[in-house]
Amino acid sequence: MLEANHDHNTERQARLARVVFRNDLTPAEALEAVCDREGEVDIVTEVSPADAKRVQSSENARLVTIDANRVLVGIFNQWPERDVPLSDRRAREALSLAVDRERLCSEVMDGYATPLASLTPSWCNGCFPGAQPRGRDTERARALLADAGWPRGRSLSLAAPASLAGVARAIAEDIRGIGLDVDVIEVADEGLIAGARTLIEKKLVPPWDVLVHAWFDLSSDLPPAVVHREFFGSDGAFRAGPPIPEFDRLFRDLVSCIDSDEARRRAEEIDRWCYEEAAVLSLCAPQALYAVNRNVEFKAYRTTFELADTEVSADHWSRRGTARERAGKAVAAPAG
């Protein structure tokens, strides 16, 4: 349980006296409590697009959404030990042109996502001027794949954590549309740590061609510091291939710059490089979805889960009734 610091001396002093994080529920139980009842769960984070309708139709909760600093992409396995030419920009661009991002956002993400051109969402600093997500172009994709020398009969292995399996299946369907067969590898939760370790340590070559991967940024100022660097940098956790000297040069130029306007221009240059090289399979920026119980005013942030601005009206369950009743409710809900 968090309690307000009444001595905080800015306008950001907590509006709430207390916040109780509950970790004694399953996601389904939490959703049921926020939608169907009052006074048990006030805010549920990470609502899935599939559950959004339930929240919207609820009498006790409403859906709060925000374009968040989150990206969903495919990592190309560019290690030379692999038998497919994903170190060739043409092969990467072919796969990028195969994907229908609009369909992905509207059908798989139920409209709660924005197509990505590169790695920087359009609302952040550093999205390069004129950035537009690649449209689907199956003819050009087929030609590029042939030019890159994709081995005849070799199917693409597309891996994804179980939570992103629906996204992987949609992408696979798109890629099959350019004449390339796809094997979808659904990584169970118990295999995620070993898979992440392989990717990060870079001692073994990962057993997939493309990995569907979600990542986030902690601010909107300079995404390459947290996003691009992680995917391409010499010390990037998600780089799946040899170091990339051109990216490292661009990144060094960014780090060495303390002028914010010039830094923004250099961040745009990095994002443009990522687009032109089709360095990742850019997919979409998923929204953050919250279910918020009645009489609660919650302000969503693009970056993190913040509660300083959240307040409750006089009709909220915690402000009604006697102190004894309120104490009873607090005891009934164990702290997280």
Binding site: T10, V41, T304
Partner: peptide, 25 residues
């Protein structure tokens, strides 16, 4: 400051960075 802190909310946050969000709050 200009307002008082009142009320209580219960939060269910399954995000993997929940520990960090609590730190930031």
């Amino acid at each position: 400051m200009a307002h008082t802190s009142v009320g209580e909310v219960h939060v269910f946050d399954p995000h993997p960075l929940n520990w960090l969000f609590i730190t930031w709050n």
